[in-house]
Design a protein around this nucleic acid. Structure first.
Lengths: 205, 205
DNA sequence: TAGATTGTTAATCGATTAACAATC
DNA sequence: TAGATTGTTAATCGATTAACAATC
């Protein structure tokens, strides 16, 4: 039976829905509607209902969505019901910030190992972990069966380190390096380049 | 004469084109084609030509695009021919990393001031600047005519600080706080939430 | 029951791609 | 000139919205 392929644009909205629903939980809310959720995050109510309907029927006519139930469903859909161990490569300022980042708590991820190629940094402790030598990335990540990595190395090293991560079995890379990476099919990259984010806004200024 | 409105999805690709073109310049290339540029960044050649044609005719049949010329045009289109001063608010690990970030060099931005509300941090130096008191955001930013800010404060403070930034005249906010912000029309926000980036990939794992 | 809100269909809207004349 | 590549048009494809029967 051919599993229906969900458009990437829909997948990309689900984490935003989930984040807002968790926020509503913190505020003590029990239920919400597509209307209310949409207003919070700037998406139309119809779009939210259409997106969710790709995965099942999670609401009730007249009353809307039970937040806890929908959070559970989205958590399952996004495959974050278990916590993913994450490797962080490149212990400059940004790597430091990610290594100590508290925002992964309750979102499906935890930092599990740190790498850098600077002998002066290898062996030192950042947050809860000792920085390991980038030269050992392949065996160490493979041994730990890590699938997710955050890349914080300089542009000059980004593609080389990426190749190692791919060889080690990493399937998802979040990159802070402002360069396009080439990866084989089956490996995904998401880019977080602050300059790109700012330039998307200065166009309008 | 009614200026044609460029779709946001096109605007969002321009910084990526520019980044790759600058990278080509570093590699010493003089010209490129829509085909070659597209292969580098994973966009179709037709789409690049279509996008660019919204703004003018920048290429030559048979030979493609002069990279330096196209860089200059895109720099103008994105309004980054002058450097924007940026205020960074929230001097936790992420704020520190942004304050000392070198990646804004040559991309149209420079960090110009830092704020935090923690008395223990106010007055201390990070990178090239002394941390100022968040209580003074409105007069200080207004006095400096700053239009661009990076938000690195905890979720609990994000909306309040945003309101101050808006009141101070900020028109573009890059937010690392994992929460949806509400801003008046004319003010833009871009979000960089690492967990959202990762969740967009774990769906496929 | 009356009011509210879902899930879904059909219509609309917008973005991408294919193709090619123009021309360097 | 022959080959390459643009800018643009028309066709295709996909995403969003509007509307509403179903039903809580």
């Amino acid at each position: 039976m051919p599993r229906i392929i969900i458009p990437e644009i829909i997948v990309s909205r689900l984490p935003v829905y989930l984040r807002e629903l968790r926020h509503m939980q913190v505020l003590g809310k029990q239920t919400t509607s597509s209307q209310e959720l949409g207003e919070q995050i700037g998406v139309s109510a119809a779009q939210i209902r259409k997106d969710l309907s790709q995965f099942g029927e999670f609401g009730k006519q007249g009353t809307g969505y039970n937040i806890a139930f929908l959070v559970e469903k989205l958590t399952g859909i996004l495959h974050i019901e278990h916590i993913w161990d994450v490797a962080v490569v490149g212990m400059g300022d940004m790597g430091h910030a990610i290594a100590r980042y508290q925002g992964f708590n309750g979102r499906g991820f935890r930092v599990a190992m740190l790498f850098d190629n600077d002998p002066a940094k290898v062996g030192t402790i950042v947050g809860k972990f000792t920085i390991q030598d980038s030269a050992d990335i392949i065996p160490v990540i493979r041994e730990a069966s890590i699938r997710v990595a955050v890349l914080c190395v300089p542009v000059s090293a980004a593609q080389i380190v990426t190749n190692d991560l791919v060889q080690a079995g990493v399937k998802a890379i979040l990159s802070y390096s402002p360069i396009n990476l080439s990866v084989p099919k089956g490996v995904r990259v998401q880019y977080l380049d602050p300059s790109i984010g700012l330039q998307r806004m200065t166009y309008h200024l």
